[in-house]
Design a protein around this nucleic acid. Structure first.
Lengths: 327, 327
DNA sequence: ATAGGCATTGTAAACGTTTACGTAACGTGC
DNA sequence: GCACGTTACGTAAACGTTTACAATGCCTAT
């Protein structure tokens, strides 16, 4: 049988209350002598605390729930890493709950599971909630925060890149290099996609360019591969890919079609994970700081100070070529 | 205040025992009438069970702990996916605990945390345990299973690819295509690395080839990049990379050095994740079934039937060239 | 009518902690 | 010697469930 504080109490001739006080470091409530004695007995018995019992009486688990979509992208590792590290610093564990692939039922189920465990916070990574989920979360009185998704309002906690600004920056980057026929590939039809489209359109409009070429997708490699064919007849000279995977798909499809990157087609991807270094040529990217997004979302949900938007960075590699103006 | 079964009991005029029985589907112990009544009240009150209380009285949490290294490789997503899905089928949740990067202290801490929560099983992915950890695990009487690591003994539960056989298969594959100067790049110095080295050496010895060229690494892209230079003076015609990332590193370093793949150098990578499709040329790989490894490890740790070794598959892409015999 | 069985429900203990409250012992200052 | 504060510890309730056991009522076979 696993030893409990009761066993330690009996063994050392004190009450369980004293044992509890010593073991949970309620300093100032016990003498050094009893501390030494109890610690020795605890060690000898191989005592390990029962977190479940602690959580029951405290009515709060020192755990953050992370609900995450099995998206076809690959940044989740960095987000999880950031969350995990920061949570650990704050003395919180992390439960990860998968919500399938935009599966409303599983997504709902994951939230319920988190609520049942009285977690101290809920993080929703790359999740676009429906109205029901949002109500459920709000009524639960458990703090929650969207990660890498911004719902367009500050009423709901959120940590992400500023998608609109990021898309505008990327578009400007290509405009500055002489491109005027610029496509946008692989965006979704939810908040993130809409925000990026808005930034893309604004940047073009600011230079009096009416032509926009938007192709929707699901952020996957396959998505990128398929979309290339749709861009070909449109004589764009540059494409902004909604993810590294989309960019890789576009790149490989282009190479198979005999289109040289960056000579005939420039590519910029949004994300900036390791994928960008691996392709040939390496992909120039608007790099998001996923680690920070994860870390700050923990701060956010735990009530610490944190930014809503995490800065991004343009990283030049080899997939963009400047073209002569008026081209 | 969150409603409890006590509230439901009061509201519907029955005892908490009856409520509990209805809510936990102890069929045959309550009438249909009370069931209807209690369910209605529960719904009206917005009742949600308190898992913590359940776990305390049952002395077991319906949760599997997954302890995982932040390795520089990228297969963890697939493993987690397999674990998550299978666990969910068995009604188990999953807690993921990071163990840093081969950080003995964190690793130990993660095991202790799992033990404190009375989890139903512990999964250790890509973890090489030290003696102390192993003792701790064994004494805890909680079932545990190594994932994607085989300790070389069947006394400890484990699900992985058969590293020795897999390395031999890969080596044979290259031998069959006329290569006789074959390198092995990026293996570690623990169980997995040793087993692969053994397979590699045996396959060569079986064809009376004494020359072996082994370069150690940490499975990372950087590792691959750096190791290429060490192979160059050794005039190997083919290299087996210990991971996709290593292969990608070797590939890109080769291209920068003006060495054509596969014309001048053949590459096979062990893992077979999406990375292999993204590089140019695409990487031929000895593909592991990480999803199955994850899924079966859940079966293993939960006492269901499961294999220790999960089959692998050779997937031909574009990074291997046959050479004329005697080359 | 009666014993036995079954269906349904209630009572209360148990799980392992934390913590409010009470209390005893021991100064300390007067 | 007394009031008081402080220190150290114990008692017992509480957290929200599950479940062994007891109790009740009803039905059936005799």
């Amino acid at each position: 049988m696993k030893p409990t504080i009761k066993d330690i109490a009996a063994e050392s001739g004190v009450s369980i209350a004293t044992v509890s006080r010593v073991l949970s470091h309620k300093t100032g409530t016990y003498s050094e002598k009893t501390q030494t004695k109890i610690l020795a007995v605890a060690k000898r018995l191989g005592y390990r605390k029962n977190s479940t019992a602690v959580e029951l009486v405290k009515k709060k688990a020192a755990v953050i729930a992370l609900i995450i979509n099995a998206t076809p992208t690959n940044f989740s590792t960095q987000i999880i890493d950031g969350i995990q590290r920061r949570a650990s610093e704050l003395g919180q564990g992390v439960i990860i709950l998968y919500a399938g692939n935009r599966n409303a039922e599983l997504q709902h189920q994951a939230i319920v599971t988190a609520l049942e465990r009285a977690v101290s916070g809920i993080l929703l990574a790359a999740i676009e909630p429906d109205a029901e989920d949002l109500t459920l979360l709000k009524e639960s009185h458990v703090p929650f925060c969207f990660v890498s998704v911004y719902l367009g309002t500050d009423k709901v906690l959120s940590v992400s890149s500023d998608n609109e600004k990021l898309a505008a920056t990327t578009t400007d980057y290509l405009l500055d290099r002489g491109h005027t026929h610029i496509g946008l590939a692989g965006v979704d039809t939810y908040h993130t996609g809409s925000q990026r489209i808005a930034g893309y359109q604004k940047a073009l409009a600011a230079r009096d360019i009416q032509e926009t070429t938007i192709k929707y997708g699901d952020y996957s490699y396959e998505s990128g591969r398929q979309l290339l064919a749709e861009f070909l007849p449109l004589k764009v000279t540059a494409i902004i890919a909604a993810s590294d995977m989309v960019a890789a798909g576009l790149l490989n499809a282009a190479q198979e079609a005999g289109i040289a990157v960056p000579e005939q087609l420039s590519l910029v991807s949004i994300d900036g994970t390791d994928i960008c270094r691996i392709t040939t040529p390496a992909l120039t990217s608007l790099t998001q700081d996923f680690y920070q997004i994860g870390a700050q979302s923990v701060d956010r949900v735990m009530g610490e100070k944190a930014a809503t938007f995490v800065p991004v960075e343009m990283v030049e590699r080899g997939s963009v070529k400047s073209v002569s103006r008026g081209g």
